[in-house]
């Protein structure tokens, strides 16, 4: 599989990573190399093989749906780059 610049730009946008135009070409080459490498999986017969969802032989535990802890607003916000009055602040979303 070979990716072109436009596809890489689209993936980068989906991943919300700004990639300078000048780097798209080399990145396309590197990603194509990786995707070519993984294509060997097509040699494996996986008819009727279930895709692995959990490597541990156990079901996910469920917890009680109840409030057991909380009240940590200052701690939760303590690492925010910009906060005000108990909230995170982000650039204006709605005009």
């Amino acid at each position: 599989m070979s990716l072109d610049k436009a596809t890489v730009a689209k993936i980068a946008h989906l991943a919300r990573i700004k990639v300078p135009d000048g780097e798209l070409e080399s990145l396309a080459g590197e990603l194509s190399q990786i995707l070519t490498f993984v294509e060997q999986l097509n040699e494996v017969d996986t008819t009727d093989v279930p895709p692995m969802t959990s490597v541990a032989a156990q079901k996910l535990r469920r917890r009680v749906d109840a409030v057991t802890d909380g009240g940590y607003t200052p701690q939760v916000l303590s690492n925010g780059p910009e906060t005000a009055e108990g909230f995170y602040v982000v650039p204006k979303v709605v005009e």
Binding site: V38, L41, N42, V44, T46, V49, P50, P51, M52, T53, V55
Partner: peptide, 11 residues
Amino acid sequence: NKARQVRTRIK
């Protein structure tokens, strides 16, 4: 999904 199927076979 293909990779997860191969993962099952490896297991």
